[in-house]
Design a protein around this nucleic acid. Structure first.
Lengths: 346, 346
DNA sequence: CGATATAGTCGAAGCGCTTCGACGACGAGC
DNA sequence: GCTCGTCGTCGAAGCGCTTCGACTATATCG
């Protein structure tokens, strides 16, 4: 717990010189800097956080609001929290966690007590109460996810619509004329911002290409995949030969099981593409083509934007969509009827 | 962003009176307090965090170190993070998250820069590098989990040994003479502190009661429960009629599937007890008896101890084990051979 | 009834840092 | 040779709060 005056004394310079050497905000001679750095090392000096906040008007802390509701899909959300935390550390920022009811109230508290320099908003609902609050806050915020009303906000996310459209493109290019989407349960469409966007992208592109399309949104868990099985049955009965999966890993498994139970092979009889997965789709049997949701991509960008928000030239409000990437793993084959269209785009 | 001097002026008192009224550290007349509180409300005053830290030598922040490694079981760990955060808020404390590589290095950084008042250590490995560091830190720490070498540390956890023993007691009381443990995969016994404790409690009590006992530790995931099925087969071949489950939810499902596939019913043919689950075991088919791991219990106690660590009378180092509780849901029946022992111990 | 305790309030001294303005030294330009 | 600008450094003024000691007014006691 050495203090800056001890460093100054050890290096034979004044307190302000130490401060400038450490912050780099004024030029310091190489020799002086060397002596200061050595003193810092020898004394294991680390500036006091409170003093730094008070004098520097900067906390080096991001508040991360992530409700962690009971129905939150833990693995995906944990990935985002982790990715945010890692991204923040690149700029020497720490992450303060606001969960549960405090996810909203804490934003106000933390902002007006000057505990954080910016707020990162996770697990964004379509109609999120943190939207209005963010506009009123006197520190910047960045949303990872896109609420319905996002005017004036800085948002970052995978382009889920484009991702779904890209999946449809690949199925269409392989000759599939009737395709199905296995989506999240209906409840998720109210609580989360992205399931509706996947669905919209899926249906729009299918319509543009003149494909038959259907959507099923089975409840996950429950009686051991029965709902998923029923959903798959329903899609197959409508003649679907290409499947887009936007759901959790257990539902992925259940879909593959249901297909196997019907004696259908992937990609022989049915083509399958996973969209927006944060988990590894290559460990399924068979490995699945995927347009992944990469937390690191969103979180890195979000943190960059948060940093920029604190400069004199903050980023313009608006939605930054990350372009989807298609990863082939062999789960999409030519449609059985042979009426194959052109090659997959790109 | 009103400041304390504005509150003082609005209430017609001095700055120090406002401070004392807000902290309660000196007596303030009812009338004065009323005027101050009103001014605080009208100005929406909130003390500046940095100034408070600097002057008060207290951050109102707990550092929470939780590595979130790649193989971390997300739902369980998220529950602990959430429970800790909620418990901390009860004392007006915020939680700063240290993940990944920073889980260790961040402890040192946060402690010596005075960014946190105490450290809460999650996801404790048997041989955890944070143990040595915690001893050297100049702020207190509380471990949620018990490392092998815990001398001088304050630790909190479910009494996993007693929990496993309690499960064995119930199986024995129902007349089961040959019992099996389905534990976490072998790797988890190195990374986590509690699987070995469950195993030890299981084997010790089985030996004390003169039961035949076997342990299987199937790899989870992978080829769709094949390892779990094999483990169950192996146990059944050894004549096991009572099963203790200490594993993730997917493995629970796989075990029940494997039993069903053999045409065995629960509790008719096989008795099943789940130990240390953080998930709901009543949604299985059938609902399972359980000795749950309740994150809230551990985290509340941990936060209480952390608070007490900052008083002039810190808690004595040592392991605080939380007594296990048995919840009956009908998955344990009398053993088939009829040689039933006494009733389950309370 | 004077000595003493107690309640209620205030002023001022920090807490450890950042940053502004100033100043000396020195090289460049005229 | 003198002025000017730049580089490197320093002193000191805060940042907004907590807390110590002191002071007044009132209550308590022998």
């Amino acid at each position: 717990m050495a203090k800056i005056d001890e460093v100054a004394k050890a290096a034979g310079v004044s307190i302000s010189t130490v401060s400038y050497a450490l912050s780099g905000k004024r030029t310091i001679s190489a020799e002086t800097r060397r002596r200061i750095e050595q003193a810092v090392r020898e004394l294991d000096y680390r500036p006091n956080a409170g003093a730094r906040m008070l004098a520097g008007r900067r906390t080096n802390i991001f508040a991360l609001t992530e409700p962690f509701r009971a129905d939150t899909h833990a693995p995906a959300h944990m990935s985002f929290v982790l990715a945010t935390s890692i991204a923040a550390r690149r700029y020497d920022y720490d992450v303060l966690l606001l969960t549960d009811e405090e996810a909203t109230a804490g934003m106000r508290r933390v902002a007006s007590s000057g505990l954080a320099d910016a707020v990162l908003v996770l697990d964004v609902a379509p109609d999120d109460e943190r939207v209005g609050l963010a506009r009123r806050l006197d520190i910047p915020s960045v949303f990872i996810g896109v609420p319905n009303d996002h005017e004036g906000l800085v948002c970052v996310d995978l382009d889920f619509e484009a991702a779904a459209a890209l999946a449809v493109d690949h199925l269409a290019a392989a000759g599939h004329r009737s395709i199905g989407l296995v989506g999240h349960p209906p409840g998720a469409y109210l609580r989360s911002n992205f399931p509706p966007r996947v669905r919209a992208g899926f249906e729009r592109r299918a319509a543009e290409l003149g494909l038959d399309s259907s959507v099923e949104r089975p409840e996950a868990g429950g009686t051991r995949g029965a709902a998923v099985r029923a959903a798959v049955e329903a899609l197959l009965e409508r003649g679907v030969t290409g499947l887009v999966l936007h759901c959790d890993d257990a539902t992925h498994l259940a879909v593959l099981d249901a297909l196997a139970a019907r004696g259908l092979s992937v990609p022989g009889d049915v083509a399958v593409v996973s969209v927006g997965a944060t988990f590894d789709t290559t460990s399924f049997q068979p490995p699945l083509d995927v347009i992944p949701l990469i937390p690191q991509a969103s979180c890195d960008l979000a943190v960059d934007l948060a940093m920029q928000s604190m400069t004199p030239a903050p980023p313009a409000p608006g939605v930054r969509l990350i372009a989807p990437e298609y990863h082939e793993h062999g789960s999409v084959g030519e449609a059985a009827d042979g009426s194959v269209a052109a090659h997959p785009p790109d």
